[in-house]
Design a protein around this nucleic acid. Sequence first.
RNA 1: GUGUCCAUAGUUCAGUCGGUUAGAACGCCAGGAUGUGGCCCUGGAGGUCGUGGGUUCAAAUCCCACUGGUCACCCCA
Length: 416
Amino acid sequence: MNYRSVKGAKDILPSETSQWQFVEQTMRDVFHRFNYREIRTPIFESTGLFARSIGELTDIVGKEMYTFQDRSNDSITLRPEGTASVIRSFIQNNIGEAQPLTKVFYIGPMFRQERPQAGRLRQFHQFGAEAIGSPTAETDVEIIALAIEIYKALGITNYSLQINSVGDEECRPRYKEILSAELRKIADKLSNDSQKRIDQNPMRVLDSKDENDKLLTASMPLITDYLNEECSKHFERVKTLLTAYGIPFTVNGRLVRGLDYYTKTAFEITSTELGSQDALAGGGRYDLLVKELGGKQTPGVGFAAGIERLMMILEKKGIQSPQRNPKIFIAAADDSSREWVLTTTMQLRSAGVSAETDLLSRSLKSQMKEADRQKAEFVLVVGSTELESGKGSLKNLVDHTQREIALSDILTFFKQ
RNA sequence: GUGUCCAUAGUUCAGUCGGUUAGAACGCCAGGAUGUGGCCCUGGAGGUCGUGGGUUCAAAUCCCACUGGUCACCCCA
């Protein structure tokens, strides 16, 4: 085999696409119920957009982006996530001027050059939603409820919701100072990764998976204890509304997001059905992002979720889309009927019926086997005798019954 | 980026202590008194054993390198 798909980029094969369409249709229905409209942005953007929004110091920007110079020497990046593009488009097209609150969703491929493993690809697919223009906790909860409703609609139940508040531009820097100071005292005992983060991103240290780090930081101060009044009130309101809505959650004061633009609410939905990559969805509030990217000060909140990880759970739980099989297979009993068979198949298709026939000049037995393999509901057998008498035998492959039918009635029979 | 394990028909796998024609199941193709699928029966096609090198009289089997996959770290959806 000469050519293979690039590492971490997978084909979605004909045997899998109906499942993908089923999943996408289900989420589109839910988005519609929540009155979110689809937005489709380009899969590449100026590199600066991502560097600015996600953060120069994040791993995504620092070492995972597919960045290249195009033939005009502009620096282009394949999008590693969806929010930055949506906000760019929101600003560029003055979408916020038409109404105070913009509710959009997206579905599409994202690109990150990480080492592939279970639940992690280099080209992967995300769906997500953004509510841009509202500062209220009600909006945070609608976004969380929207994500959860999609999992519910797909029959996924084994997930858990963790929430936190990461503060705002006033209280977070203050907390970071305090935390950094505490961490510096034990710096030499922390893991290498954590030591590097003490100054740049101390909150990530508290989220370390290293057992020793966990022990050492067990009694460290948490952001939730240092929120200012506004952030604290917002966080309380989110918790109250989630409870009122009946959405179970746990507060995790160590939860942080990998993107820098989040403020106040941050959340993550995880599943025990996945491997070590157990995050199904993540999101939060980003009140500074629109302004950061050159727009008017506009609050926003959103989430992003991985489709492949969702598919892994559906597969594991045996949740499958209904199959779309041909309604009728028309078999030619001999060569004299092939012309009639082909034209009738075409006419059925024009009339809106999924119809199939044999293109390989195969024996009747082979055609019957093919009809069975295709899971066609009916088989119509037509040969020279049927053409003369004007009547064919129509077999129902599901209940195994067979009846005579006038060939001239075929179209009307299958139209409804 | 670091590490783990793995690599044999289309697929999932077996292959003894290195030993001569590399197997199974499923799938595929063709038949089963000649015009009817599923189950069943018969037959058939299909593999330079990932690639390259080494050890050996002899390598799918042992060793090395590379490539690819996999899972974990990391990161995150």
